[in-house]
Design a protein around this nucleic acid. Structure first.
Lengths: 131, 131
DNA sequence: ATTACTGCAAAGCGTTTGCATGTTC
DNA sequence: GAACATGCAAACGCTTTGCAGTAAT
């Protein structure tokens, strides 16, 4: 059976308070300030549990995994400049019609990833281009 | 300038001969039989170059990266059972209309990933279910 | 009292890098 | 002979695991 743990509760709270998609390391650093004895392994272990319980989504990003409080399927944008990950305005993780008919296996889920420059990085590069 | 190398040529050939999406390790193991002095680092270095030259695509899969001779954008299916990666019948990596208008950055590319059971694994699990 | 959860450190995996040597131009 | 490419091993970054101790039920 699963038991209460202060650490898990803190991780849950921290992740739900942030709207974004922190890495385990980021979460760890933040929690560590008010929780000096916390260990990174505990963060990973708890995130793993939350994911397996369907409370949290794991975004297998390029580099370190990111964790997302929003579990409903939705798309993500990855900025190639600053590495940030942004929720896209609406879910479009819909399997295109015909695809399932023409594919011989079973498609259970899908994820669309978009790549480019986020607003901030776009503005920065525009500025540089003007000079 | 870039120079000829037997190793790079062998990697190119091996990757283009296979229709699938091998990992660096798989490629290395295969080439090693006819090329005993080959080093894994060389495989990684050359794959990296081929990717940066646009000759090969890197699929940042879950676990180890996979490499794909097909560079035109197309979707991939990941089997949760055997871990295989399959090209999907047709490219649908099209940025949904409206999305670019409602997103404040620049979307340069996208990738759709599908997850589930491949044909073989589906048949296996069907068989087990019948017993 | 039982057994889940913790912290720590060590190991794991995939990948990259430093360096001396070999190869291509 | 200049510079790119190689092989090897060591280091890397992210993540998991083994273990002895702590804490929740």
């Amino acid at each position: 059976m699963t038991r209460y743990s202060r650490q898990r509760e803190a991780i849950r709270k921290q992740l739900s308070n942030r709207g974004d998609h922190p890495t385990a390391e980021t979460l760890y650093a933040e929690l560590k300030t008010n929780f000096p004895e916390l260990s990174l392994a505990t963060v990973y272990r708890n995130l793993g549990q939350l994911v397996s319980w369907g409370e949290v989504a794991r975004i297998d990003a390029y580099g370190a995994a990111r964790f997302d409080w929003r579990v409903e399927p939705h798309s993500h944008f990855f900025c190639r400049e600053c590495g940030c990950v942004i929720d896209l305005p609406e879910a479009d993780d819909i399997v295109p019609h015909n695809l399932e008919e023409r594919f011989d296996g079973v498609i259970e889920s899908s994820a669309s990833n978009y790549f480019g420059l986020c607003k901030e990085c776009k503005e920065k590069s525009d500025k540089i281009a003007k000079n």
